[in-house]
């Protein structure tokens, strides 16, 4: 398995920055997410997590630091959380942290909905 590293650019702020590291078992998605063809962007990330759960089977930490994500992106994030929940139910060790801006209360509600829909525990952490 290879790492995934996608850097953000000021000219395409609708793509988030992505870092999925196999050796560390840490995945990070940050910035903003409102690209076209959302599923096409997220599919490799979804497949990476599926492969990790199937073949690597070590602990996995997901850190989400998205300031904004559109509703299409929320569907893909939910898909990721559901895969992580399945991994956890099969004995995998998973931790999900969601970093949020305290001046954006709507995001807290969104994360609560993700928890309820996926069954995955999400740690809410304020941005420093």
């Amino acid at each position: 398995m290879e790492n995934i590293t996608l850097t953000s650019s000021p000219t395409t702020p609708y793509f988030p920055e992505v870092s999925f590291d196999v050796d560390k078992g840490i995945c990070e998605i940050s910035g903003e997410s409102y690209m076209e063809e959302t599923y096409k962007f997220y599919l490799p990330l979804i497949n990476w997590i599926k492969d990790y759960a199937k073949h690597i089977k070590k602990s996995l930490e997901l850190n989400i630091k998205l300031i904004y994500l559109n509703t299409s992106s929320t569907k893909c994030i939910l898909d990721i959380l559901e895969i992580l929940k399945d991994f956890e139910d099969e004995g995998g060790k998973v931790k999900v942290n969601w970093y949020y801006d305290k001046s954006d209360p709507d995001m807290v509600e969104e994360v609560e909905d993700f928890e309820a829909e996926s069954g995955m525990k999400i740690e809410l952490i304020e941005f420093e």
Binding site: T38, T71, S72, T74, K75, C76, L78, A116, E117
Partner: peptide, 20 residues
């Protein structure tokens, strides 16, 4: 909020997005 959860869980995904 209920509608949103229901719709997102049941949306076909892929090119159709979440429809919410």
């Amino acid at each position: 909020r209920e509608l949103k959860r229901e719709q997102r869980l049941n949306s076909p995904g892929e090119k159709f997005g979440a429809r919410i």
